[in-house]
């Protein structure tokens, strides 16, 4: 091991969840990652392992990834018990191997939640998050026929608050980290963004009601305020947006919009 320390490269032991398909049983398999430099990203380290597997005639590990610069939200694996590995504001693709030591054993598991069925190995289906947005995660603005962008001044603080919420990349780490498999941070951020902006306030009561319904319908759990979601979020989305969603819910309830919406069959 010390032989590697001299040139800075590492050998690591990976314990990876392998599962052939959604309804197949899965199990952990152990692999060696050899000659990894501190500059390898975590996914590039996985690439190295996969290249070895292919050459050995084995099936490479399937994992989701795309932009590899921390913005598309596609990469998703739980590293040593925490989504994206648990380094502050870091997606898996931006996690570099300098955070690990030679000889480390690394457990790699897929997002686990009822709402995210496994597709293969580390790849899961996060369509449930899209369903939440489809439920009401938008402002019903038609294309064309909208007022000038400056017609409604929006205070800098309001704009900044909305932007803080809007930074969510939809990776689902919050759901994966939540002991209850809840999507409250994801939904709360979207609800807060639109509830804060004047353009979104018109539909705010219906939005919060519909999105909460959709969470239950799509298999997400309830919030018990562990705040594990914020800690695991690669964009550091604040749980204050969950509080905001709760507030919007209470407001909607007070306005009796929620009940009306439930009657109209959503």
């Amino acid at each position: 091991m010390s032989a590697h320390a001299s040139d800075g490269t590492m050998n690591l032991k990976l314990i990876v969840w392998r599962q052939k398909g959604p309804n197949e049983p899965g199990k952990f398999e152990t692999y060696e990652a050899r000659n990894i430099t501190p500059h390898h990203s975590f996914l590039e380290m996985m690439d190295v392992v996969n290249e070895d597997l292919i050459k050995e005639g084995k099936e490479p590990i399937v994992f989701d990834h795309d932009c590899r610069e921390g913005i598309c939200g596609m990469c998703s694996a739980v590293v040593n018990g925490v989504p994206h590995g648990g380094f502050k504001r870091t997606t898996l693709c931006q996690l570099h191997m300098r955070k690990f030591k030679d000889g480390d054993a690394i457990y790699i598991e897929p997002w686990r939640s009822r709402a995210f069925p496994i597709v293969k190995d580390l790849m899961v289906d996060r369509g449930a998050l899209d369903k939440l947005i489809q439920a009401a995660g938008y402002i019903s603005a038609h294309t064309g026929g909208v007022p000038d962008g400056n017609a409604t001044p929006i205070g800098k603080r309001t704009a900044d608050y909305a932007m803080d919420a809007a930074e969510c990349i939809g990776c689902g780490a919050c759901v994966a980290a939540c002991p209850n498999g809840a999507a409250m941070l994801f939904a709360g951020a979207k609800i807060s963004q639109y509830a804060e902006l004047p353009q979104g306030q018109v539909e705010a009561p219906e939005r919060v009601a519909a999105m909460i319904n959709a969470m239950a319908e799509n298999g997400f759990g309830n919030c018990t305020n562990h705040y594990e979601c914020q800690a695991a979020c690669p964009k550091g989305i604040d749980v204050k947006f969950i509080a905001r969603m709760n507030r919007e819910f209470v407001k909607a309830l007070a306005q009796d919009k929620v009940g009306a919406l439930a009657q109209s069959g959503k």
Partner: peptide, 22 residues
């Protein structure tokens, strides 16, 4: 110009100055 208006209407949080303008 229509694009900016459209995006604002959709709730895209463009940067604003202290007076609230884009």
């Amino acid at each position: 110009n229509n694009i900016i208006d459209q995006c604002v209407a959709q709730g895209v949080p463009f940067a604003r100055d202290y007076a609230g303008y884009l």
